[in-house]
């Protein structure tokens, strides 16, 4: 078994697991099961990134999404003890029927497009400036990303962190009902 075959088979296995977790996310009854399904999707996607050699994206996916955001999701689900109100859901409401028809149509079209084009070679026109060799020469993904983030995109980086800080302060102010 050569390397590419191995990578392809691992990607396939991870993809199948991710799809199963996605189904859990869609069809599970308890909110926590849904959240854990999403966690599974994130972990297996991170596995796919790691096996194709994009370690940085894989670890960031685990640190940020699986390690931080999903923990907060699950924490709040557990804290507020969300009850599943499956009984009260109206399966025959016109809005639900309309959205399900639209979703089904989009899904069928998407599936048709994917099946039509899935064996066409990679599109060459949309690539960024960095090739894999260039990234390795420059010292790996983290180095290249950090360098462009803190030189070229420094102002937007600072602006985004400021926006996040404002959001954080706003959340604290909103959560604290009485300010003295």
């Amino acid at each position: 078994m050569d390397n590419l075959d191995f990578i392809n088979s691992v990607v396939t296995v991870f993809g199948i697991f991710a799809a199963i977790c996605g189904l859990v996310l869609l069809f599970a009854k308890e909110p926590l099961s849904c959240a854990l399904g999403l966690l599974g999707v994130l972990i297996f996607t991170a596995g796919i990134y790691a096996i194709i050699g994009e370690h940085f994206i894989a670890t960031i996916q685990l640190v940020v999404y699986a390690g931080a955001i999903m923990v907060l999701f699950i924490f709040s689900i557990m804290l507020f003890n969300v009850k599943h109100d499956r009984e009260s859901f109206n399966w025959k409401s016109p809005l639900f029927l309309f959205t399900s028809v639209v979703t089904a149509a989009v899904f069928v079209l998407l599936g048709r497009t994917i099946l039509q084009y899935f064996d066409t070679p990679v599109i060459e026109s949309q690539k960024g400036i960095f090739t894999r060799e260039m990234v390795t020469d420059l010292g790996g993904n983290s180095q290249v990303l950090a360098h462009s983030l803190f030189t070229q995109h420094f102002v937007s980086f600072e602006a985004i962190s400021l926006a996040l800080l404002i959001a954080l302060v706003g959340a604290v102010v909103l959560a604290k009902r009485k300010l003295n």
Partner: peptide
Amino acid sequence: NVNSGVLFILAFAGLEVY
């Protein structure tokens, strides 16, 4: 030999809460 070794450890330390 992961390209971003320390981050990898942080990632799995973050999963220890689950």
